[in-house]
């Protein structure tokens, strides 16, 4: 019974992280592309498009972190010190990003400074999340129940590449979100920006995918060994489909299709990571089962999660529905 629960929880935590990535991804992406929209009113519309939902989106990050501590405390205790600097820099960046939503309205003279904070906060947070991911994929040195590596282990060419990939990917989510939620000039410019971003992201997904199997033979075995290769080959095929739909949507002036396709790219990349990691929590070092908290912890929180996560999804969906449709800059937000 223990075994089942730890895998159930791995699924729930993975879902929380994925939910965070796709939801806060377009929030952060909106900030990342701020420099391409210089007009004050354009930036107002952009922040207004995410103001009612960003806080809920970011809560998935708290669930990812808090949940990891609750049900995989050993993994949490090893990963956090290993990724010390990227995590700290991400948290500080999220502070700048989060307060800028409110602060930019509270001042005449300094509002451009908070816009800058919004941009740099969004960008560095995205970069650090990608670097943290890359560092985890590369592997973590562990002795006993503790991290035993150095303080700069996380900084490698591979982790920088994954950092840039997430930065570009979030930017793509951001512009396709703006393409969906805005009209006129902002939408046109977003759609235009989406093309080079799409090409950049696809190139980086390709590069990371080709590099990963050679980092650790576990990954190689998983992707090219039989019979898992049959299933894992589905991922690249579906990625290609998403890429086609993304490009088709952008070249045919669609509003929703590019956003959904970009989300699809993220979901599939995430599934690809899951294939590489399984059954490990920390590649090659700590399995899901070994990282899990005692059964009494898993059971206690699972009872709540089974009831509460569907409720959360329901009222989150309601909130999105309330604020559905295009934002009309002329009439404000009625």
């Amino acid at each position: 019974m223990d075994i089942d629960l730890s895998f159930v929880w791995a699924g729930i935590i993975a879902f929380a992280v994925l939910a965070y990535v796709v939801l806060d991804g377009f929030d952060l992406g909106t900030g990342i592309v701020f420099p391409f929209f210089r007009q004050r009113r354009d930036r107002d519309v952009m922040t207004n498009s995410i103001a009612p939902v960003w806080d809920g989106n970011e809560t998935w990050l708290v669930l990812g972190g808090g949940g990891l501590m609750a049900v995989f405390p050993l993994a949490y205790a090893i990963i956090m010190p290993a990724l010390y600097m990227p995590i700290i820099l991400m948290l500080v960046s999220l502070i700048f990003r989060g307060v800028a939503f409110e602060f930019r309205w509270r001042t005449h003279h300094e509002s451009h400074l908070w816009d800058f904070g919004f941009w740099i906060g969004s960008s560095v947070a995205a970069l650090m999340q990608g670097i943290a991911l890359g560092a985890l994929v590369q592997g973590i040195t562990v002795e006993g129940r503790q991290y035993a590596g150095g303080w700069w282990d996380w900084l490698t060419p591979f982790s920088i590449m994954t950092g840039v990939a997430v930065l570009i990917g979030y930017a793509l989510l951001g512009v396709t979100w703006l393409n969906l939620k805005t009209s006129g000039e902002i939408q046109a410019r977003s759609a235009k920006l989406a093309r080079p971003l799409s090409l950049g992201l696809l190139a980086l997904i390709g590069a990371v995918s080709l590099w990963t199997p050679f980092i650790n033979e576990i990954y190689f075995e998983r992707w090219f060994g039989w019979p898992t290769a049959f299933f894992s080959s589905l991922v690249p095929l579906m990625l290609a489909l998403c890429a086609f739909l993304l490009w088709h949507g952008l070249t045919h002036g669609k509003h929703l299709q590019p956003f959904l396709s970009a989300l699809g790219l993220f979901v599939l990349s995430f599934v690809g990571l899951g294939i590489s990691f399984y059954p490990y929590m920390i590649p090659g070092v700590l399995t899901i089962r070994d990282a899990a908290a005692p059964a009494s912890s898993l059971k206690f929180l699972l009872v709540g999660a089974v009831v509460l996560v569907p409720m959360i999804l329901a009222y989150t969906a309601y909130a999105y529905w309330v604020f559905r449709g295009k934002i009309d800059p002329q009439e404000g937000y009625h």
């Binding site: 405390p73 205790a77 912890s297």
Partner: peptide
């Protein structure tokens, strides 16, 4: 976190 996580975390 490693030691008290199973109690505090949930």
């Amino acid at each position: 976190s490693d030691k008290a996580g199973p109690v505090i975390g949930p």
